[in-house]
Design a protein around this nucleic acid. Structure first.
Length: 862
RNA sequence: GCACGGUUAGCUUAGCGGUAGAGCGACUGGUUUACACCCAGUAGGUCGGGGGUUCGAUUCCCUCACCGUGCACCA
């Protein structure tokens, strides 16, 4: 027998111990040469700067559940981990450190800075990897990848070169989203619309040809008026048609600008007149193109005004300049009025500053394989779960714009393009530099981080690994990166592997706080998962979270739920402790000696296995966790173990023996079923109890159900009746305020030969009698149970009035229910149209109610 | 503006055509052969409002309100 188990489960040492052993035993390593069927999943690579958040916990717990279950199903499992170099985020972290030391990246120069980032990465990067280990993740760490590993980088560059040669990648001077803080272009996906309280300024421009006549114009951005090179109205707008072709005076710097007609002008908005600033607005740029307007850029890359804005504005921040421009308009008598105005302003996702539409030279990708990608998702070749995300996905991809893939950063994959020093039109696009590098300059930009992430599922695998494990089975991710990542991976996979990258995409919900707000650093409403692990254990955290994470629905996080997870682990621990105190394990349930209670618990187990399997089939992890929770706590601990306490005392050795066998059978199954959710505690108990010498991770999940021959319906029914009767009698005791610890005489008035020792114990009877001829005196507390009439003769307590009142209440309740049923049965339409089974069920209920009422009335009438 | 979710006991939620279920919290009682991270029991719900379909609607349809998310607009 193993050492005795302590009374409260202490996760810390157990979790650390097993994780260490799993790594030592290389339990998580995937073998491409294995003959077993494969199962694979690639981790959504967290930022190398990242620390574990609740989102990661949710995400990675689900992946671990899937991976561990697959392992137990006898599959060769690859869960491939790694981190993302996270261009802006990482560069920013290192720049901040430099600034703290009084340096800038320019002091180091490009190469020096990049080296500095690598140093930082080696020293501090990837903390999250260790945190994932604390969570128990069964990743194959021997295959950990980083998006800037030499091999990975090479694939990124090859991809660029290949797409360039195929004509998908091109360079162009275009309007892009400019982040003035980080001073780089961004893709459309990195711009977040934020509802902002602003001001709509109504100003007036004088018409050159009609002095004294003014056009009134509404704008939110007066600071860009120095870049106005035109004024536009809708050609159908009769208010302004006479001005088309004439000119306005731009007030400062004073200049004549043409009045043009353009369909894009909304006559309803503002005054119906638009000032056209082609350098600082996407729509204005298009209008400018159509009418040959000049482009005057009045902003510096950092969001301050440049010399073209005029002397008094130079160097002012754009928001300062806005105020100043409005003031100046006022001084000139050109500001008509100001109006409070709520509008959406595009913010940089990373920099959290308003982005600036800016004309610049950038690299763009025209997406490949769009049709195949739409088709793969629409036809469920890659299946989205829940499938409502298909619509979102289709809408995005059908309106897709070319992807701006260049970033003005130093940290990242440098664009493999060189320009000839003497002949700028000569470009060299290749993964290798030109043979005469001294005559060439390499492009200064790096690629968008997502341009490396979109290759993740296959760029992380070598050829033999791909052969065995690609495409992967499941991808688990939050829906907020459906465009950034999921869609693009499918396209890349079609282009380079000729197939889908994953069979299923499971979109988790977002974790919110109890007020429904997103968790964020600035709100400080995000609990630290490591702190939760320290207090509740990784298993408790995992199970608690999984039990409240409904399919594709956002999750209101409540620490109470994690506490319940810990409590559940403790319950499991103690149930095993109870079992261990009874002696060593006994394998195999014997059909001939099965008790009613055993049959009942095995029946419940089988139903639970059914629910669990359905849950997994539907990716309904909450359903899986919840079924296991209910079965184990309620059916097994509350009912079966309590019943077992009686059976284990039986003088019949066969009964004792088989009860132990059933306990062991169920516990073994429960440990296996729970292992994907609570890997550490189940491993500890599995080995400590002696269920197997090897790791539970590889225990066969094949046959979890009890043999149907054990499930005699009449026996199951008997157990259920006894349980129901137990509740009724406990209820009766409570009504009479008899402490649950106090033994009290219980008489079952029924002709029967069954053994009621379990019942007697469950209701804490002392003594318990079965007496078909019991002479029930008046006022003796009484209840109707499925076993028959139960009396509770209490010494010195015969309160006729109280008992009568209690029964009267019960009668009233029954009568109300009876009335409902009878009303339905009296309804001809119901009897005729409802399915006969439903009608029959109602008739049966009517009979049952009548029978009960009769017996209750008998008690009061006497 | 368009689209997709959600609205069930004080809180977190399950159910999704045929007697509304759980956990937490509240209340009552409890050191009973593991577990107070526990056990037994009680109270608490016109299932967001209105209309429709149906013998019957929390469940299906329409509509409104509110909350959330995405997309578009964003002068």
């Amino acid at each position: 027998m193993s050492a005795e188990i302590s009374t409260a489960y202490e996760p810390k040492s157990v979790e650390e111990k097993w994780y260490r052993i799993w790594l030592e035993e290389k339990c998580f390593q995937a073998d491409p040469d294995s003959r077993k069927p494969s199962y694979s999943i690639v981790i959504p690579p967290p930022n190398v700067t990242g620390v574990l958040t609740m989102g990661h916990v949710l995400n990675n717990t689900i992946q671990d559940v899937l991976a561990r279950r697959a392992r137990m199903q006898g599959k060769e499992v690859l869960w491939l981990p790694g981190t993302d170099h996270a261009g802006i985020a990482t560069q920013n972290v290192v720049e901040k450190r430099l600034r703290a030391e009084g340096n800038t990246k320019h002091d180091l120069g490009r190469d020096g800075f990049v080296q500095e980032v690598w140093k930082w990465k080696e020293k501090y990067g990837g903390i999250i990897i260790d945190q994932l280990k604390k969570l128990g993740c069964s990743c194959d760490w021997s295959r950990e990848r980083f998006t800037m590993d030499p091999g990975y980088s090479r694939i990124v560059q090859e991809t660029f070169v290949d797409l360039y040669r195929k004509g998908y990648i091109y360079r162009g001077r275009r309007m892009v989203n400019w982040d003035p803080l980080y001073q780089t272009a961004l893709s459309d996906e990195e711009v977040i619309p934020v509802s902002t309280a602003g001001v709509l300024y109504f100003m007036r421009y004088e018409v050159v040809e009609n002095p004294g006549t003014f056009l009134e114009i509404a704008t939110t951005r007066p600071e860009t008026l120095m870049g106005d090179t035109g004024v536009a109205v809708n050609p159908s707008d009769s208010r302004y048609s006479s001005f088309i072709g004439k000119h306005c005076w731009r007030p400062f710097p004073r200049a004549k600008i043409p009045i043009v007609a353009d369909e894009a002008i909304d006559t309803e908005f503002g005054t119906g007149v638009l000032k056209v600033t082609p350098a600082h607005d996407k729509l204005d740029f298009q209008i400018g193109q159509r009418h040959g307007l000049k482009i005057v850029d009045v902003l510096n890359p950092d969001g301050t005004m440049n010399t073209l804005a005029g002397e008094e504005f130079v160097g002012l921040d754009r928001f300062e300049a806005r105020k100043r421009a409005a003031e100046k308009l006022g001084e000139l008598g050109l500001l008509v009025r100001e109006e409070a105005y709520q509008n959406n302003v595009g913010y940089s996702e990373r920099g959290n500053v308003p982005i600036e539409p800016r004309l610049s030279e950038q690299w763009f990708l025209r997406y490949p394989r769009i049709r195949e990608t739409i088709e793969a998702v629409s036809s469920s070749q890659t299946r989205f779960r829940p499938d409502r995300w298909i619509k979102t996905f289709e809408h995005w991809i059908e309106n897709i714009q070319d992807w701006c893939i260049s970033r003005q950063l130093w940290w990242g994959h440098r664009i493999p393009v060189w320009y000839h020093k003497n002949d700028p039109d000569r470009v060299h696009v290749d993964i290798d530099p030109p043979a005469d590098p001294e005559n060439w300059d390499q492009d200064e930009d790096v690629l968008d981080t997502w341009f490396s992430s979109w290759l993740w599922p296959f760029a992380t695998m070598d050829e033999p690994t791909r052969k065995k494990f690609y495409p992967t089975q499941d991808l688990v991710t939050a829906p907020d990166i459906i465009f950034f990542w999921v869609a693009r991976m499918i396209m890349a996979s079609f282009e380079y592997q000729g197939k889908i990258p994953f069979e299923n995409v499971f979109f988790t919900g977002l974790i919110r706080d109890l007020q429904g707000r997103k968790m964020s650093k600035s709100l400080g409403n995000s609990p630290d998962p490591l702190d939760l692990i320290a207090r509740y254990g990784a298993d408790g955290l995992r199970f608690g979270l999984m039990r409240i994470a409904p399919q594709g629905q956002d999750i209101r996080f409540d620490e109470k739920q994690i506490e319940e997870g810990r409590n559940f682990a403790n319950k499991l621990w103690n149930a095993c402790r109870f079992r261990q105190l009874q002696g060593p394990l006994v394998e195999g349930v014997l059909p001939e000696k099965i008790s009613a209670f055993s049959a009942c618990v095995l029946d419940c187990l089988n139903r639970t296995v059914e629910r669990v399997e359905n849950g997994y089939a539907n990716y309904a992890f909450t359903e899986v966790a919840q079924s296991l929770y209910e079965f184990f706590w309620s059916d097994f601990c509350d009912w079966y173990v309590e019943a077992a306490k009686t059976e284990l005392q039986s003088s019949d050795a066969a009964i004792v023996d088989n009860c132990l066998r059933v306990l062991d059978f169920v516990l073994g199954r429960v440990l296996k079923l729970l292992h994907p959710f609570m890997p550490h505690i189940t491993e500890e108990l599995w080995r400590r109890m002696g269920f197997g010498s090897g790791s539970i991770q590889f225990a066969d999940l094949g046959n979890l159900r009890a043999d149907n021959r054990l499930l005699v319906p009449s026996e199951i029914m008997l157990a259920k009746q006894i349980y129901e009767a137990t509740t009724i009698v406990r209820n009766l005791r409570a009504e009479y305020r008899i402490p649950s610890s106090k033994k009290v005489r219980i008489v079952l008035k029924a002709p029967t030969q069954n053994d009621f020792s379990v019942f007697a114990r469950l209701v804490n009877a002392g003594p318990f009698e079965v007496d078909p001829d019991f002479d029930a005196g008046h006022g003796i507390p009484f209840a109707l149970t499925p076993l028959g009439q139960v009396f509770m003769p209490i010494e010195g307590l015969v309160d006729l009035a109280a008992e009568r009142e209690r029964i009267a209440k019960e009668i009233a309740k029954l009568e109300a229910e009876l009335a409902t049923v009878q009303a339905k049965l009296a309804n001809k339409s119901f009897v005729q149209r409802a399915p006969s089974a439903v009608v029959a069920e109602h008739r049966q209920r009517e009979i049952n109610f009548l029978r009960k009422l009769e017996q209750l009335r008998e008690r009061t009438d006497r």
